[in-house]
Design a protein around this nucleic acid. Sequence first.
RNA 1: GGCCCCAUCGUCUAACGGUUAGGACAACGGGUUUUCAAUCCGUUAACCAGGGUUCGACUCCCUGUGGGGCUGCCA
Length: 496
Amino acid sequence: MRTRFAPSPTGFLHVGGLRTALYSFLIARQTKGTFLLRIEDTDQARSVPGTVENILKTLDWAGIRPDEGVVPDNGQVAQKGAKGPYIQSERQGLGLYRKYADELVAKGHAYPCFCTSQRLEEMRKTQEAKKQAPMYDRLCLKLSAEEVRKRIAAGEPHVIRLKVPHERTITFTDEIRGEMRFQGHTIDDQVLLKSDGFPTYHLAHVADDRLMEIDLVIRGEEWLSSLPKHLLLFEYLGWPPPKYAHVPLLLNKDRSKLSKRQSAVAAEDYIAKGYLPEALLNFLALLGWNPGTTQELFSMDELVEAFSLDRVQKAGAVFDTEKLDWLQGQWMRKIPLKEFTVRIRPIVAGAYPAAAADPAFEKKAALIRERITFFAEAPAMLGYFYEEPQPTVELLANEKQKVTKALLPGALQKIEEILREIPEKEWNEERVLAAVKAEVAKGEWKLGQLLWPLRASLTGRPFSPGAVEVACALAAERGTEAVFERLERGKAVATR
RNA sequence: GGCCCCAUCGUCUAACGGUUAGGACAACGGGUUUUCAAUCCGUUAACCAGGGUUCGACUCCCUGUGGGGCUGCCA
């Protein structure tokens, strides 16, 4: 199948857009078809420079690579394919939108309208006051052919409007929603060609999806109400319409359409926060779609395999990122240690330059891999390896662990004695822990009373990997004396 | 207001008329090498309402209610 994603360059890639792009991409891959990227920039006023580069960069990050259309080329915007150009403002020069508009006028399915925006505004106000549906009143439809010719010849600004057949019922079967019907008399005479000669979305997407031979249009539910206009256009132009799949909207917590005001909506925001593409994509895929099994974790390949439109939900989905965070952790833990090390090393080195050439860095990375959620947390989680910890009495003592300030010197003394008895060669996590537990078994000390002060002395932090883990890592790298030095410092603080 | 779409735990969702309404996230409780995590185990938690159809409705139909979208020479 030939599918497409056709964003407007209004600043950034919306997460909802990323989801429809993903769905379109999945269908294309699944059917060994083509995924095409087209830029819909017919509204010059709303186009924001740099957006296309941004969208391309974000899609690339997500692993969604267009086979055709607008594609990235070393950070530049390039176009690929025989049905281009793929940027509508560039297609404007081809004159095809005007051609189709004229064809519709000639066939009697569209007409020029000279009404000013002021008049339209007043008309709507009046209609609203009368509790009527705001719709164009077809004033210009009454104009004689002669008058139309004259006014156009005189260069009077005008638009081309679709003439919607009021007596007809338009029916259609959506890939997700099934059968739908619309009454013609409730549909407004949509502007197809603006007075600046640019097409509106309605005409442009119909023409381009036809010309680019798109089989399936996946887009947001907000387009559902204009679907009949699009169907009419295909019919009047003598083309079979593509299949349409209107996906449910992404929602704010209050269930309104996901908006910038209430939530982070730019895909870049999530990249900046440190989310893995695997996690975001997995999350987006599961918002509104389910595989029918209990599988929750999906790689792109697995999504290509499992995805189907008939399992896409009809109702909107709240964009609640709690599950995203969980998925992030899951995908984080799937990263092989070697790769994990490569990825966090520069980040840690940014805070602690010694990490850059640290031969024991991978061992340290292993310590935090199971507990980290974002790469950016790594420096804080490993800092005590690169700077001497500065524990305080408040940290060393811990009410919950039943380590009072009075008990502290004795506890530190005891843990030191235990550790001293283990020959340096025998230091490993099992051995050290067994030694501590053997002491606990005697009944005088509780596990936490010994381990907490040790951990706090070694790290100087309220949170860290376990005391035994840190002690062994430190001993392996610098010898057990490094551990005892820190223990001494803890004792000094405790007895001060 | 008009048109269109939708409706299961707080959130994402499963259920092809017959289930103690299942799973995941979150929350809560507990286990684990102490803390924060991770991990394991457990608990709390839902069929919007009313009518039909049917031997039997979360499932089908109708009505109501609620929510959302659209209602631009924006997309």
